[in-house]
Simulated assay, not measured.
Amino acid sequence: MTLETIVFSVKGRPLPHTSATLDESAEEAVRNAVFDVAWTGPGIPCAPDDEATITISGELWGTGYVRDVRGAHDENSRTYAVSFVSKTCDATECSVDDLEGLKRDADLGDIAEAFDSYGVGVEIKANTIRKSVHKIRPGETLFQTLETDARAQGVLIYDSPEGKLVLADKPEGRHAGALRRGVNIESASGSLSGATSFSKVKVRGQASIGVSASALRAEAEAKGASRRKRVLIVPFEGEATSERLKKRAKWEARRASGEGVTCTITVPGFRDEAGRLWQRNRLVEVDDDWLGIEQDMVIASAKLSQDGAGGTTTTLSLKDPRALGGDNPRGKSNDAWAAPGSADADYREG
């Protein structure tokens, strides 16, 4: 296993640490990390809002800022816990600073770039629908103004190692090798719940122009994973069209099912068989007969941990790929692990 060196640099100066935990997720816009900093200099090792980067054996993992500095001491020793957040924190916490707050004929990428008041940056990896006008609500953040439309269009919002917002609608790729019980799985657990699973998801919306049934009583319906009657009705956010309603219905059915079906696997080291750091929103083959999984899964989140002795492990939270916009894995898993896989949603007018 490769000996990994994590470097936590604040204002261009590496801070020595005795342990580190690094978290990234395809379902959260901000990655974060926590370090136990070994500091013997005067005062505190750093301060909140100091610019910071994290590298793993020379490979950039995160770009952002110091968030919290917590110090403690007794008569003979002292400790400091320092946390890190991605640059994207400003997109989730700070209001859009734009006097007009209006963008015409724009897709999600155009909107993100137009209202990026803090220079976070955006990477577009999804095809999104253009809208005639987008209006900022006073006080809302960039994430808030994007999230409503992103949810309606099946788009994930997370961050990149460079600290930019990423808009994606499917897994970015796959990891080499596989996760196998008895080979490289140190521990594993699974959680199966029917609480968020529905037999049908219906999305209902209206158009702003017209009085016909298609304008006032439009509905799309997608099949869910529940084996008994459980219907979820979702009001559509924004201008309703056939295409938009069907896409939202499929996405909601898959996401709802995926929320209740996840497994957590811990593996040694930080990298796959090809030497790539484990990353969120990538596919990996999983073969664990004790959990009943034999299929591709998508990494919803990855937690990289290193202790004082240099030992490294990665804890992966995984879901059926369809839960994050991917394709049917067509494996041999127990049916309880599956997300809805219908090719399309049905559309009808009231």
Rank of each mutant, 00 (worst) to 15 (best):
residue 98 D to C: 13
residue 99 L to K: 15
residue 99 L to H: 14
residue 99 L to Y: 11
residue 102 L to Y: 10
residue 102 L to A: 07
residue 103 K to G: 00
residue 103 K to S: 05
residue 104 R to S: 08
residue 104 R to V: 12
residue 104 R to F: 08
residue 105 D to K: 12
residue 106 A to S: 14
residue 108 L to M: 11
residue 109 G to R: 01
residue 112 A to V: 07
residue 115 F to H: 12
residue 115 F to E: 06
residue 116 D to G: 08
residue 119 G to M: 13
residue 122 V to A: 02
residue 122 V to N: 00
residue 123 E to M: 10
residue 124 I to F: 00
residue 125 K to I: 03
residue 126 A to G: 00
residue 127 N to Q: 11
residue 131 K to H: 10
residue 133 V to A: 05
residue 134 H to P: 01
residue 135 K to F: 14
residue 135 K to D: 14
residue 136 I to L: 14
residue 137 R to T: 15
residue 139 G to L: 12
residue 140 E to D: 15
residue 141 T to Y: 05
residue 141 T to L: 03
residue 142 L to Q: 05
residue 143 F to D: 03
residue 147 E to M: 06
residue 148 T to K: 03
residue 148 T to F: 00
residue 149 D to P: 01
residue 149 D to M: 06
residue 150 A to Q: 02
residue 153 Q to T: 09
residue 154 G to A: 04
residue 155 V to H: 08
residue 157 I to K: 04
residue 157 I to R: 04
residue 158 Y to K: 10
residue 162 E to G: 11
residue 162 E to I: 06
residue 163 G to M: 02
residue 165 L to C: 03
residue 166 V to K: 02
residue 167 L to F: 08
residue 169 D to N: 14
residue 170 K to T: 09
residue 170 K to E: 11
residue 170 K to Q: 09
residue 171 P to G: 07
residue 171 P to V: 07
residue 172 E to D: 15
residue 173 G to I: 05
residue 173 G to M: 00
residue 173 G to K: 01
residue 174 R to C: 04
residue 176 A to S: 15
residue 177 G to F: 11
residue 177 G to M: 12
residue 177 G to E: 07
residue 178 A to V: 10
residue 180 R to M: 06
residue 182 G to P: 07
residue 186 E to H: 04
residue 186 E to S: 09
residue 187 S to F: 04
residue 188 A to W: 06
residue 188 A to S: 13
residue 188 A to R: 07
residue 188 A to P: 04
residue 191 S to N: 13
residue 192 L to N: 10
residue 192 L to T: 13
residue 192 L to E: 08
residue 198 F to P: 00
residue 199 S to R: 14
residue 200 K to Q: 09
residue 200 K to C: 01
residue 200 K to W: 05
residue 201 V to N: 06
residue 202 K to S: 13
residue 204 R to C: 11
residue 205 G to N: 10
residue 205 G to R: 08
